[in-house]
Design a binder for these strands. Structure first.
Lengths: 236, 236
DNA sequence: CGGATACTTCGGCCGCCGCCGAACCGTGTG
DNA sequence: CACACGGTTCGGCGGCGGCCGAAGTATCCG
């Protein structure tokens, strides 16, 4: 009050952006890494377009979202990987306590598709993400014993698989991201993003509908087995 | 509204705990890893005891704080390392934008002591934390190239230095924590905590006053130089 | 036992914030 | 040009939540 801690003020202001159910729903939706229009988000969150417009204004002003205007559309996406990580961290903190019991078949099947495989901003998560991470670890390409890092063999593997790693910028090459369905860490960071992009580009997996869920194709099963020894059964 | 996303609800509820300046000030203060009494926090935050009591109730109910009652005192501390990490992450997200210009000499000297060396929950931060992390990296004990992990030599170093690493539990052995004064990652996780505890136990550094700041002793300078080659000049 | 201290509970006040619908603006379309 | 459509602005409403001080409870101390 007389002399407030500016750091506390800033922290509270940032947290306030997450502290609303509608905004939280938007941020979680945007974890798919894609850009959504304002009206899509409004429908998703179940509020009026005018309400959502104000929310987007705050989120953009707060630096959490980046916007891009095209014609009469306003596209927004998470500002950067740092923001995505923050959303993931908060979501992960909250998830362990949840024992979701889906209400009906639609939610149940949607939920199980998400649990099977999904993107987490720009990398793979769900059983798919875990299976890949485990396979990398088992083959000595990734080590989780004394931290979380690619091994030299791992670097070579990415190269030989033709998956380029753009190491400019500050983002860590490999980083652990806690999976909220599996409750175990999976590969994120530059390597995780590159792997996911490669998987989508080459058709190892495809997105299901407009959600974050992804599905492994037959070609993907073959490639994952050939390259990493991932058994198809781990993905179901 | 008809069918709200329970994850969004949970995330918003969690974030709401951080989204108040008074509670944020408490959480940041508790980042020193110690237990504070309710009245200490009330004084620190500049609010009435009754107000703070309600805040503590919420934070405890929300699982962010653990409490311990002793006589007429209510001690609280951060619930665990996970919570501490979340606070750090949020604080780090907010810090880069801040270019603090201290108002007066007291704040200035307090600030520079914090910048020189401090604890970040249970590990070392500030120039001290960075110097140690850099030294570990330069000596090949820690690698940040392909992630963030101790090397085999690093494991051996901890052993030979007599710093035990208790690897039970899920906490990662080594983890990067972004330093909000140096804006670079420093060592956290089990190894970071063990190193910090060792440094305080053996008198390499001592706490300054009741704050998070720590000061490297003459014995500490010698030990850090002998064991890691840290130059005393890096610590000033 | 009586007073001091630490904390909690309660009632009441105030301000902020999320919500909506209506009106408005700008862009694309027949 | 008229119209549809996506988005924004505005006014107004309602509720939540943070704040305080006063009163109450529990503990420690002399």
């Amino acid at each position: 009050m007389t002399t407030r801690d500016p750091q506390a003020t800033a922290l509270a202001r940032l947290a306030a952006l997450f502290a609303d159910e509608t905004r939280a729903a938007c941020l979680l939706a945007l974890l798919d890494g894609r850009a959504w229009t304002a009206s899509e988000l409004a429908r998703h969150a179940g509020v009026a377009a005018s309400t959502l417009s104000e929310h987007l204004g705050r989120l953009v002003a707060g630096g959490l979202l980046a916007e891009e205007r095209q014609g009469r559309h306003r596209y927004v996406r998470l500002a950067d990987a740092r923001v995505a990580q923050l959303v993931e961290d908060l979501a992960a903190q909250v998830a362990p306590g949840r024992t979701v019991r889906p209400r009906n078949l639609r939610e149940s099947s949607a939920g199980s598709a998400m649990a099977r495989g999904r993107t987490c901003y720009d990398h793979l998560a769900g059983r798919l993400g875990i299976a890949v991470t485990d396979a990398l670890t088992a083959r000595g390409l990734l080590q989780q014993e004394t931290g979380f890092a690619l091994t030299d063999a791992g670097l070579a593997w990415f190269e030989s698989a033709g998956i380029g790693l753009d190491r400019r910028g500050r983002r860590p090459l490999a980083r652990a991201c806690l999976d909220w369905t599996e409750r175990r860490p999976h590969l994120a960071g530059i390597a995780g993003a590159a792997l996911c992009r490669h998987a989508l580009d080459t058709g190892w997996c495809v997105r299901i509908g407009s959600e974050r869920a992804v599905k492994v194709t037959a070609a993907g099963e073959r490639a994952l087995f050939d390259l990493l020894g991932v058994q198809a059964t781990e993905l179901r």
